[in-house]
Each structure stands twice: as C-alpha cells, then as structure tokens.
Nucleic acid binder design. Sequence first.
DNA 1: CTTACGTTTCCTGGTT
DNA 2: TAACCAGGAAACGTAA
Length: 274
Amino acid sequence: MVRQTGCTMSISSSVSTQSQLPAAWSTHYTSTDGSTAGILGRMWQETHPQLWSKFQVWEWLQQTFDVHQLDATCIPFQNFDIDGGQLCTMSLQDFTRAAGSMGQILYHSLTELKWNGHCGNELFSPVDIKTEIDDLLDIKAPYQASMGQSTSNPVTQVPEVKRKLNRPQEGQFKKHNPRGTHLWEFIRDILLNPERNPDLINWEDRTEGIFRFLKSEAVAQLWGKKKNNSSMTYEKLSRAMRYYYKREILERVDGRRLVYKFGRNARGWRESDK
DNA sequence: CTTACGTTTCCTGGTT
DNA sequence: TAACCAGGAAACGTAA
C-alpha cells in the first residue's frame, strides 16, 4: 500500500544534504525563537503579517501567485524587499505601484490575512498547515521524517473553503497548472530571484537559458520541502528534469554535469519576458 | 469512480 | 570510488 522507502538511503541523503543548505537561508530567515526549526523559515501562514520576515513576505508573494495561477515572473520582487511591518503599511495605491495590475490581488490577500488570519482563497492546503510539524521532522529528526510519513494524518481533513473573491481576470490563468508550481517553474523562479538564491543555481548563459546547479542536493531539499517530501534527492529530481527533454521544456546539454537548458516550451525565463 | 498528468521511486547500466 | 547521466517501468497524488 504505502511504498516502503529505503531508510538507509533516506537517512544518508538527509544528513549529508543538511550541511549543504546555504548559510544565507538559515541566517537570513531564522525564526523569532531562534530554534533550529527556522532553518527554512517559519511559514508565513503561522504568523501575523505584521511579524513577517522578508523571506515570509516573499513566500506569501509566491504562494499568492501560485494560488491565482499567475506567472511568478510577473512579480517585481525587488519592490517587495521589505518585512511584514513595512508591508502592512502599504496602501492599495502602493501595491498597485509596486505590482501593477497584480497589486489589487495582493492587497486583498493581505487585507484578509490581517483581519482573519487567513485568506479566503484556498491558500490553506493540508500541506501548508503541516509545515510546522515538518520543520521539526526535517531539521531535528530526519530519520523519522523519512521513515514514518504517516498514512493517517489528522490535519488532512481541512475543510475546503472556496470563495469567489480575488479571482484573477480572464487571460491571466495558466492553462493547466494544478495547485502550485511545476518543477521547472520552481527552478526558473530560483534563477530569477538571485537575491533570494544564495548560489543554489547559476546562469551559465543567460540569453541561451543555460543554467547549472551549484548545490544540487540543497535544491532537491527545497523542492522536497515545497512538495512536503522530506526524502527528495537530486537523483530523483534529476529524473523529473530528464522527462522535460521530451516535452521540450528543457533541452539536453551534453557533457556538462549539472547543466540544463530551457527549451522552446519553457516560458518566462527570458529577460525580455519580465 | 476513471483518467490524464506530472512527477516520485527504483533500477540497471554507462560516464566523468 | 563518488557523483552524475540516461531512460524504462511502475507507483503515486491530484485535479478534472
């Protein structure tokens, strides 16, 4: 029923990759209580916007765009290099100035969060709510995390709240993008936000769309984090990457280890796309 | 409930 | 020897 994963492999990969997580992530995004659980930052959902760090603001931005199925490359991240306190002082006009037509969506999302402690727009998947637990599992007990992924999880039963509010305008939808981003979009977004990307992935040739993994296992850990999968490894991530060759989302780069190239079906990575 | 999609997991074998 | 690459096969989770 549940696939039994190789424990020894998971343990070794978790432990070995932990040290590869870039220092900037832990220093920049430590939690307020200073515990190790904050290595990847406390999820923004758990705190009032007022108390968000810059990273949590960034997470909220990403998540909001994901939920509305908007192209993350439209986000002018440099306009949101601020913490939660500053974010909360922004007016609708400020948002519009900072994010154009997207400003309204962001403003409404934030307003709901400020008042209700949650968005009324399906943001709270079980995955999101589980992050607190996962932080502990990931950081403090990678062994249990890889072995004991429970089959019965009480928080799985989250009522599906759906409101019409904040619906993106027609034409801003992506075609068929089930909740959250795809792997290649996740990779692209790391590349497009170098200030948030402490040497995880580099452009080899910006105009050709050629890039290189610098910390392959750390990226895999982050991807796993996003997918709530603590046993993700570069080995497995790279298999998913190879499937993109056929769909021409990626092109092969022969002879270069850890190097990939965006293909004709990958959108939003070019400088001119911004 | 069924199906399609996008992975995830595992594996064998090859290369750097 | 470790780390990576290629791609088949099958399982899995989710959305429609």
